[in-house]
C-alpha cells in the first residue's frame, strides 16, 4: 500500500480550511444564482415576447456571453475592465459579476425555451374556453413552463458551483488554493500529500453537486 498522504487531511485545521475554501466557492455561486434566476426569468419572458428590437438586443447579449469560455469573461473583467476604467475590482467581486452575467444569460435561454415549447393549441384551447389573455398566461402557460424549468434551473446551480472552481485563476483563495497551500506546507513531512488533498477536493465538489443533480433528475422524471 503506497503512502497516499491522507493523514495530512486530519492534521490540525486542514479539513476545516478546505471546507472554508469550498464555502467561498459556494457563497459566490449562491449569490450569483440568487441574482441571475430572477433576472433571467425577466429577460427570458422578454425574449419570448413580441418586441423585435428588445429580442435582437437580448439575443446579441446572450450569444456573446455564451460563446466565450467563462474563464475568458473572468479575465476580461478582472484584468481588462480594471485597466480600461481604472477601478479596483477584487477577484471575488469580479467573479460575482461574471457569474451573474453568465447565469442570467443561461437562465433567460432556459425560460425562453420553456415558454416557446408550450404548443399553440394550449393557447387556442384556452381561448376557446373563453379565458382572457392574462388568465391563459397564468393558469395554462406558466404552470407548464415552471414544471419544465425547475429541474433545469436546479441543474444550473450545479453548473454554477462547478464553474466557480475557475476563480482560482484570478487569484481568489478558494478550495483549490487552500489545497495548494496545505500541500506546500507539508511538502517535507508527507511528500505524497498531493494525492490525499486533491482527492479530498474532488470528493468535496462531488458531495456539493451530486445531491443537487439527483434532485433535478428526480423532478425531471416525476414531472415528465
Amino acid at each position: 500500500m503506497p503512502d497516499l498522504g491522507l493523514e495530512v487531511l486530519f492534521k490540525g485545521q486542514n479539513m476545516v480550511r478546505l471546507l472554508g475554501g469550498l464555502g467561498v466557492a459556494l457563497k459566490i455561486s449562491l449569490i450569483a444564482v440568487g441574482v441571475s434566476i430572477p433576472l433571467g426569468i425577466l429577460l427570458g419572458i422578454l425574449m419570448a415576447g413580441k418586441n423585435r428590437v428588445v429580442k435582437a438586443i437580448l439575443r446579441v447579449y446572450l450569444e456573446i456571453i455564451r460563446i466565450m469560455p467563462q474563464l475568458v469573461l473572468l479575465f476580461i473583467f478582472f484584468f481588462g475592465t480594471t485597466r480600461i476604467f481604472g477601478w479596483d475590482l477584487s477577484g471575488e467581486l469580479a467573479a460575482i459579476i461574471v457569474f451573474i452575467l453568465w447565469g442570467t444569460a443561461e437562465m433567460s435561454d432556459l425560460v425562453r425555451g420553456a415558454l416557446i415549447s408550450i404548443p399553440k393549441h394550449q393557447y387556442e384551447s384556452g381561448e376557446a374556453l373563453g379565458l382572457s389573455g392574462r388568465q391563459i398566461y397564468f393558469f395554462i402557460v406558466v404552470p407548464q413552463a415552471v414544471r419544465q424549468l425547475i429541474p433545469l434551473s436546479i441543474n444550473l446551480v450545479t453548473r454554477m458551483i462547478k464553474t466557480t472552481s475557475l476563480i482560482l485563476m484570478i487569484g481568489v483563495v478558494e478550495v483549490l488554493k487552500v489545497a495548494q497551500q496545505i500541500i506546500e506546507a507539508n511538502r517535507m513531512v508527507s511528500p505524497n500529500a498531493a494525492f490525499g488533498v486533491y482527492l479530498a477536493v474532488l470528493v468535496l465538489y462531488f458531495i456539493a453537486c451530486w445531491p443537487i443533480s439527483m434532485l433535478a433528475g428526480y423532478l425531471e422524471k416525476k414531472w415528465r
Binding site: 475557475l166 483549490l176 486533491y198 477536493v201 465538489y205 462531488f206 443533480s213
Partner: peptide
Amino acid sequence: NTPLLIQLFF
C-alpha cells in the same frame, strides 16, 4: 458532478 479543473489537478 466535479469540475474539469479539479479533475485535471487530480
